[in-house]
Design a protein around this nucleic acid. Structure first.
Length: 444
RNA sequence: GCCGCGGUAGUAUAGCCUGGCCUAGUAUGCGGGCCUGUCAAGCCCGUGACCCGGGUUCAAAUCCCGGCCGCGGCGCCA
């Protein structure tokens, strides 16, 4: 390895390393050339460090080589780590220098302040945008969320599964899937692992989770939709009711909030974005029946949502204010959604079939989780399908799973990028995706 | 899909409403020069832009129409 340590760790261990030889590799973030003294600020994802070259001290062939360096050149320097009046408190007195790469044309975007550029420009030159530590911290944070998700559910006895992304039919409707040419037939990109995570539960794995991409062919033009995003899915068998599912969802967010306080990477990301870990009341995330929500919205905010309709995004924001004011919570569960706005596999309430055992979780006013109890009784499932006007034949492969013993079960799907967006208070989900795919964008 | 807003150097912007004072200003980058302790280094010189097409007018970055591209709201959803 050319590089032995991240810059951040060298700086962290400065008290033991000062006075010793170090090798530092990174990108040239700044060049301050005073003629006979030259300062290079080197950067990697973990931090900055100054490298100093001085006429009469640094070997002349090294000084000469340093003349070639431009901003964002990739270099390794070797020298004595010394105390210095820099931000980091140290600098490297360069004795040897290797230029590994020099930009071949002027930079279209300056990494140091790329977050001030317009989003389309940043996305076009994302490899430069990501060099801005404020931007890379988003993806370190995303990895953190995924890691906590994986660790939390594994610790609760869930098995990680990997389901197909090439599927024969859409999950709920046919309209919002991307067709793909698969040998001599048309298949689709999965818009949810829904059927297959239920498959895994019924197949006896009982509790499963998956982190994977999903594809939505909707032509949205908003700050909260992507055509390709990552779904954090869970599904569990032998539940008593859908509150069991919500407990596991809440458990994850509680763990996530806790680890945001403890984890250095997460803390740093929150700090540079001016965000704080979410507030969850000790008494639990509040649960509001959607029928109550209609009333709250009407009486408290003068916002009318007709009975049996879904909440629109304004209503979701208002319910977030309600949760903050009444419960000091950044989260609120909206429960018992109307049957007409939920997919056919949702379990309906026995004595009120127009309503369902389902929920959404709003995080600071944005829907980040959807879940509920699934219908596991074969005949009921067929009825549900018919009630939605769907053809039984199109879903027979799925119905077959339920023919040979299916426990009561439920689950949820969470949008990874949305969780990152809301945690860090980003203005646009695209910022939470390294290379977002939207209606127009397929490169880079 | 429907609706709204926008497009000025590599980047970020001023100018547009109220046409002429625009030979299009500023910052940063880029090229060159000075400087032995800078830290968003500083100073000097230079470089570089009105999305495309049509129209109105003596005169268009500015007003009008069309196109292309971008952004956002709604719907739908994570």
């Amino acid at each position: 390895m050319l590089k032995k340590a991240f810059i951040g760790s060298l700086v962290e261990r400065k008290s033991e390393l000062v006075g010793s030889q170090v090798v530092v590799c990174g990108w040239v973030h700044r060049i301050r050339d005073l003629g006979k003294v030259k300062f290079l600020v080197l950067r990697d994802r973990t931090g900055f460090i100054q490298a100093t070259l001085k006429a009469g001290v640094t070997p002349s062939e090294v000084l000469e080589e340093a003349e070639r360096i431009k901003l964002e050149s990739v270099v390794c320097v070797e020298g004595l780590l010394s105390e210095a009046p820099t931000r980091e408190g140290v600098e490297v007195k360069v004795e040897n220098l290797k230029v590994l790469s020099i930009p071949v044309e002027p930079l279209p975007l300056e990494p140091g302040e790329s977050d001030k550029a317009a989003l389309p420009v940043r996305l076009k030159y994302r490899w430069l945008d990501l060099r801005n530590p404020k931007v890379s911290s988003i993806f370190e944070f995303e990895a953190f969320v995924a890691r906590v998700f994986r660790e939390y559910y594994a610790s609760q006895g869930f098995v990680e599964i990997f389901t197909p992304k090439i599927v024969a039919a859409g999950t709920e409707s046919g309209a919002e899937v991307f067709p793909v040419l698969y040998f001599d037939k048309t298949v689709y990109l999965a818009q949810s692992p829904q059927f297959y995570k239920q498959f895994a539960v019924i197949a006896g794995l009982e509790r499963v989770f998956e982190i994977g991409p999903v594809f939505r062919a909707e032509p949205h033009h908003t700050t909260r939709h992507l055509n390709e995003y990552h779904s954090l899915d869970i599904e569990l068998g032998f539940i008593e009711n859908y509150h069991d599912v919500m407990s596991y969802v809440e458990g994850f967010f509680r763990e996530l909030a806790k680890r945001m306080e403890e984890d250095n990477t997460a803390r740093k990301a929150l700090e540079v974005h001016g965000a704080e870990p979410p507030r969850i009341p000790a008494s639990g995330i509040p649960k509001v029946r959607i029928r109550e929500a209609y009333e709250i919205l009407r009486e408290r905010y003068g916002k009318v949502i007709p009975e049996g309709e879904d909440l629109d995004s304004e209503a979701e924001k208002l319910m977030a204010s309600y949760a903050r004011e009444e419960y000091d919570s950044d989260f609120v569960f909206i429960i018992e959604y109307p049957w007409r706005v939920r997919p056919f596999y949702t379990m309906r309430i026995d004595f009120e079939p127009e309503w369902t055992y389902s929920f959404d979780l709003l995080f600071r006013g944005l829907e980040v989780v959807t879940g509920g109890q699934r219908e596991h009784r074969y005949e009921r499932l067929v009825e549900n399908l018919e009630s939605k006007g769907l053809k039984k034949d199109d879903f027979q492969f799925y119905l077959d799973f339920f023919k040979h013993g299916a426990p009561p079960h439920g689950g949820a799907g969470m949008g990874l990028e949305r969780i990152v967006m809301q945690s860090l208070k980003l203005q646009n989900v695209r910022e939470a995706r390294m290379l977002p795919r939207d209606t127009e964008r397929v490169v880079p």
